[in-house]
C-alpha cells in the first residue's frame, strides 16, 4: 500500500468522501440506523488504511460535513463530535497501518482497526463530555451510545473492512501490502 502515487491517493480520498454521503443514504429509511450500523465510518477507515493518515484526516473531517450539508445527516448538533471521532479513525488507522508490519495483512488490519475504534470512541466521548455537551454527558450515556447501541456497526466494521481491502487488492485497485509467496517464488526463478 506504499506504492500509490499522491494523485491516486487524492482521488481515492475523494471517492471515500463521496461514499461518506452515499452509504448512509441507503440506511436513512431505517430508524436510528446511523448510530446502530455506523455506515459513514467504513469509508473513513478504508481511506486511512489505504491512503495514510493525512488523507484519513481529511476524509474524517469533510465526509460528515458534506453529508450533513447535502442530506441533513448527521444533524448539525452532532456534527462536531462526529467529525472529531471520524478524524481520529482516519488518523490512527493511517499511522498504525504504516508502523505495524507483522507479516500478515489480517493481523495488521485488525490491530489498526481495534486501536482506532477504541481511540475514536473514547475521543468522541471526551469531546462531548468536555466541549460540545459539557456538563450533560455521562459515562453511562457514552457506554449506551458508543458501545451498546453501535455494536452491530462495530461488528460490520470488523467483518467488512478487511473484506473490502482484500477485494480491492485482488482486483489490483490497490497494491498488495506483502508480496505473495507464489509471486515471490516466480520472481526468484
Amino acid at each position: 500500500m506504499s506504492e500509490m502515487t499522491s494523485v491516486k491517493k487524492s482521488i481515492i480520498c475523494a471517492v471515500c468522501i463521496a461514499l461518506c454521503y452515499i452509504l448512509p443514504l441507503f440506511f436513512h429509511g431505517i430508524q436510528n440506523a446511523g448510530s446502530i450500523f455506523c455506515p459513514m465510518h467504513i469509508p473513513v477507515f478504508i481511506c486511512g488504511l489505504v491512503c495514510g493518515w493525512q488523507y484519513g484526516l481529511l476524509c474524517g473531517i469533510s465526509g460528515p460535513a458534506i453529508s450533513s450539508a447535502l442530506s441533513g445527516m448527521p444533524p448539525v448538533a452532532l456534527l462536531p463530535s462526529m467529525m472529531a471521532e471520524l478524524a481520529v479513525y482516519g488518523v490512527i488507522t493511517g499511522i498504525l497501518m504504516k508502523k505495524i508490519r507483522t507479516g500478515s495483512v489480517y493481523a495488521d488490519l485488525y490491530i489498526s482497526l481495534t486501536i482506532a475504534i477504541i481511540a475514536g470512541r473514547v475521543i468522541a466521548g471526551l469531546t462531548r463530555a468536555f466541549i460540545f455537551t459539557k456538563g450533560s454527558y455521562s459515562l453511562a450515556m457514552w457506554i449506551g451510545g458508543y458501545v451498546v447501541t453501535s455494536w452491530p456497526g462495530t461488528l460490520i466494521q470488523f467483518v467488512f473492512i478487511p473484506t473490502i481491502i482484500f477485494a480491492l487488492m485482488r482486483a489490483h485497485l490497490i497494491p498488495e501490502r506483502y508480496q505473495r509467496r507464489d509471486s515471490a517464488v516466480q520472481a526468484g526463478k
Binding site: 494523485v7 487524492s10 482521488i11 471517492v15
Partner: peptide, 17 residues
C-alpha cells in the same frame, strides 16, 4: 451492496488517476 459499491467506486478512481 457495500463491497460492490467500493469496488466500482475504486475502479472509477483508478481510471481517473
Amino acid at each position: 451492496m457495500i463491497v460492490p459499491i467500493f469496488i466500482s467506486s475504486f475502479k472509477r478512481a483508478d481510471e481517473l488517476a
